[in-house]
Design a binder for these strands. Structure first.
Length: 294
DNA sequence: AACAAACTCAACCGCGATATA
DNA sequence: TTATATCGCGGTTGAGTTTGT
């Protein structure tokens, strides 16, 4: 019944890794590659659980780790990504080559939070601190906060402050999500070094705010359609990336239905209700829809 | 020099999603 | 189909280090 245990916890080391343990892990992964963390410790002669080995490798031993201080550009990129993704450290790390989720998480908590506060910005909402403090009832970005679980967004039926902040448009998601796909794992990408370099350069160009190409943040916010079959079929498609993988196209599809067109209701964006919303009932939920023609 | 407070960051913990027997 | 393990993630902890008094 079920799988066998990954390791005998009574016989595993804990705490800081020794140089010898590190070397064993490095040597093993050099020969056999990443993966199969369950059997790795025994095969590598380590008295650690696979989980610990994985963490040590990913956060510390991987050869492609950048190390060293974060640059100003990285700081700003992290802030922008956090404003879009929230505490999705692994996703944020995916956009910063050579940085780990743990590293970014620590850096956020120890440096960037303070930096934002000193700028008068709330690190959680990315809005001015005084605004955050004064809008305890319902603030628009909170109301429209899509950074966490998308299905939990916009459940309130009354938006008290319609002065929505769409400044995030300067850093936009493309609805086709090309630019947000998870970077391939170097160990399993199958790409040659040149291909990897080109791919990385391409991605860098896509994300580099300094080259004037910002991500496209066209999005729809609403509740998932009652037509759950549509959602679940999208969810179970063999090739479907995980929602965690930023499948915003899927989210967009799921969110459009049964929502009131916010761009029309609030009078910006389009002058008429978009087709996405034309057939939906006014049920008290709102969506900011990407016009189908665009 | 000695101590305490503050800071840093590697490692651990617990959970949800997924895989597998 | 079910029970259980693995994987990967975000949150938290605590040992080691730095800074202030």
């Amino acid at each position: 019944m079920g799988r066998s245990p990954c390791c005998e916890k009574a016989h595993t080391n804990k705490g800081a890794w020794t140089k010898e343990e590190d070397q064993r892990l490095i040597n093993y992964i050099r020969v056999h590659g990443e993966g199969c963390w369950r059997s790795l410790p025994k095969a590598a002669g380590l008295l650690r659980c696979g989980k610990s080995c994985r963490l040590r490798w990913i956060n510390y031993l991987r050869p492609d780790l950048k190390r060293g201080n974060f640059t100003e550009e990285e700081d700003e990129l992290i802030i922008k990504l956090h404003s879009l993704l929230g505490n999705k450290w692994s996703l944020i790390a995916g956009r910063l080559p050579g940085r780990t989720d743990n590293e970014i998480k620590n850096y956020w908590n120890t440096h960037i939070k303070r930096k934002l506060i000193s700028r008068g910005i709330d690190p959680q909402t990315h809005r001015p601190l005084n605004l955050t403090a004064n809008t305890n009832t319902v603030t628009a970005p909170t109301e429209l906060d899509f950074r966490n679980t998308p299905t939990s967004v916009s459940k309130s039926s009354s938006i008290k402050n319609p002065s929505l902040d769409f400044n995030y448009n300067e850093f936009q998601f493309k609805s086709n999500t090309d630019s947000l796909e998870e970077p391939n794992c170097t160990a399993s990408s199958g790409m040659t070094t040149d291909e990897e370099q080109q791919e990385q350069l391409h991605k860098k160009q896509q994300y580099d705010p300094s080259n004037g190409q910002d991500l496209n943040l066209e999005l729809s916010i609403g509740i998932v359609s009652a037509d759950s079959s549509r959602v679940s079929s999208a969810n179970s498609a063999e090739s479907k990336p995980k929602v965690d993988n930023n499948n915003f196209q899927f989210l967009e599809q799921a969110m459009v239905a049964k929502a009131v067109c916010l761009c029309w209701q609030l009078g910006f964006g389009t002058s008429e209700i978009c087709r996405n919303c034309q057939n939906s009932n006014s049920n008290g939920f709102y969506s900011y829809c990407r016009p189908l023609d665009s």
